[in-house]
Design a protein around this nucleic acid. Structure first.
Lengths: 340, 340
DNA sequence: GCCTGGAATGGGAACGTTACCATCGTAGGC
DNA sequence: GCCTACGATGGTAACGTTCCCATTCCAGGC
């Protein structure tokens, strides 16, 4: 291993060990036990001495197995995405797979671009968490047989496995809790639902249950990026309207919880008297004022399950099993913000 | 593009367009302008119709250019890491590079494993943010000529470019601020410094300045993972000790700020009267009680600069330029936690 | 008219692996 | 003692690119 030595190749190792490159290939390709004790020792010694690492590019080319999993994240700064990604990463590592993470910043153009790149690397599976309709690229990948799993949101009528939260029951348990705590006038705050099925599911369930239960309230969808004033106005309007029962706000996800908490603080509204509750558990929910009640998603599990699902698809390859939908239950973490 | 069609190859496109594969290669390899108008049209049409994407594996193999950048992150759940990663990712995209992110969860074994994998993919550059001494793997990578850049922490006497915070001046401005606000008795809280140069630099500067200024105080280093009680005891001891001037806590990074805030809350200590300040700006610092004063790092810039540095190294290839060290200034965000 | 040169294109040999198909012993069944 | 079969090993042809070196064509200088 001199100064600017190129990486050693399988051929050099083979020569150095006095064996054929096939044997070296077998050694590193997981067929070690097929080799004699002696040969194993010699290969190990040579490889170690030369600092040999199998070239994954060559491997991927020849065998068609890139050992790569791609992940498309709509917003990498969302803690939920990070937590899921952590699960995905662990599962991949356990399987000897590497992960390529691409952040689309919610831009469809970036999404297509990244998808094209991942396709170029011939990823063996794709974990996807993006907005919008399925792009040409995605359809090509699917048609080509790349295992896909959608995180949190399904994609139009696109047929693929989905792993996420049981949104209906999550909303139900939120409402159960709020009702039990005596809140009767609700405002549900969400980001725009147009492009994300999970947001739609939550919103729909909220509306549905509002009618079914002894509750009144409304929902409000708005984009959060930078227009805090709009949100503040909406919250203020809700708080100023006449009401016969205690009021509470329900936030559709962590981003909303952050924005709403800011708005409430800016309006000087004390939490608890006015209820506040959010989907997604965040680091700081325990720290703000009386603590913010949340519904925690089992993020790591979701990530791991996504990878499992991918591998299963790959295993049953040509079999056209119907799309699986795996829904996890949220866990209620009650804190002061829903205690009057 | 039939149901389970394999991806088209360059040869198929060439045949379909009635040209040679060299021409197709040129078209996709960024030598488009060398081709006649007519040929460009024909290739574009065929490629589009067949859904052709250059196989990056083959590219990487032949040309030795993987178009891949690797990033090693010690703790992916640290918001600082995420923010930097976002910058890295943007810079990579602008350069047409893809990013492979590996999380080491602060485990040296995982670090080696991931490094080996990245080496296998022949990454063209490596952004590294990990603890500990340089591993064999890392040294091999470096010796082989892979451009490296260290994030936030330097690695023993390992020679490589470093991008991070100007730790000395960051501590100075923290102390300036605390002093100006009238605090005179300080507790500096850090995670163990053994394996991270930036932690060492901050701690050393703190101790040094304590002596140089009219301040008294001490420093306390402890592991945060799960032993909240220990931290709580340390904080309580500081608060109980007799003092002639107002007390303040200075947190070495975002993790510490989170843990200390929890400890203070659990002890029922009001912020402001007891000062609190942290390095790293976090989503929720404005939300907790009177707001927590922070020193914000220019995370995106740090990430982008890291990639720039990598590219520059690659450009000046065989030239043995001395290691560069780029240090950014932190920005003070004053809030209620340091107002008496 | 011939030679030079550059622009447009094509052919073939790598790149480092793996998969398939030999080849070689040698132990065991008859 | 011979044939079979299996276990251990090796040789070689792909995989899909890029890069180097032709080749062709035509414009322009002498």
């Amino acid at each position: 291993m001199s100064e600017h030595a190129q990486r050693a190749t399988i051929l050099e190792v083979a020569r150095d060990a006095g064996v054929s490159k096939t044997s070296v290939s077998r050694y590193f390709g997981g067929e070690r036990e097929r080799l004699s004790r002696d040969m194993q020792r010699r290969i190990a010694a040579s490889a170690r001495r030369l600092g040999y690492r199998p070239n994954q590019m060559a491997r991927g080319l020849k065998g068609g197995r890139s050992r790569l999993i791609g992940m498309l994240v709509a917003d990498i700064r969302n803690p939920f995405s990070i937590a899921v990604m952590h699960g995905v990463e662990q599962a991949c590592r356990e399987q000897g797979l590497s992960l390529m993470v691409c952040n689309t910043d919610n831009e469809p153009a970036l999404e297509r671009e990244h998808l094209a790149l991942l396709a170029g690397y011939r990823v063996e599976g794709l974990v996807i968490n993006v907005a919008g309709r399925p792009s040409r690229e995605l359809e090509a990948l699917a048609a080509q047989g790349t295992p896909l799993v959608l995180l949190d949101r399904s994609l139009g009528d696109f047929e693929a496995d989905v792993v996420g939260l049981d949104n209906a029951r999550a909303i139900d348990s939120a409402l159960d809790h709020l009702q039990a705590q005596g809140y009767g006038e609700l405002l549900y705050v969400s980001e725009p639902t147009a492009e994300a099925s999970s947001r739609q599911a939550r919103l729909a369930r909220f509306r549905e249950q509002l009618a079914a239960r002894d509750l009144s309230g409304e929902a409000c969808c708005l984009a959060l990026d930078g227009n805090a004033p709009a949100l503040e106005r909406a919250v203020a309007a809700f708080l100023d309207a006449p009401a016969t029962r205690p009021r509470a706000l329900l936030c559709a996800n962590g981003n909303v919880t952050l924005a709403v908490t800011r708005a409430l603080q800016s309006l000087g509204v004390p939490l608890g008297e006015t209820g506040l509750m959010g989907i997604d558990e965040l680091d700081w929910c325990a720290l703000v004022a009386p603590g913010i009640t949340t519904l925690a998603q089992p993020t790591e599990d979701i990530g791991r399950t996504a990878v499992d699902s991918l591998l299963q698809r790959r295993a049953e390859r040509e079999r056209p099993a119907p799309p699986r939908r795996i829904h996890y239950q949220a866990e209620l973490i009650a804190r002061g913000s829903t205690r009057r």
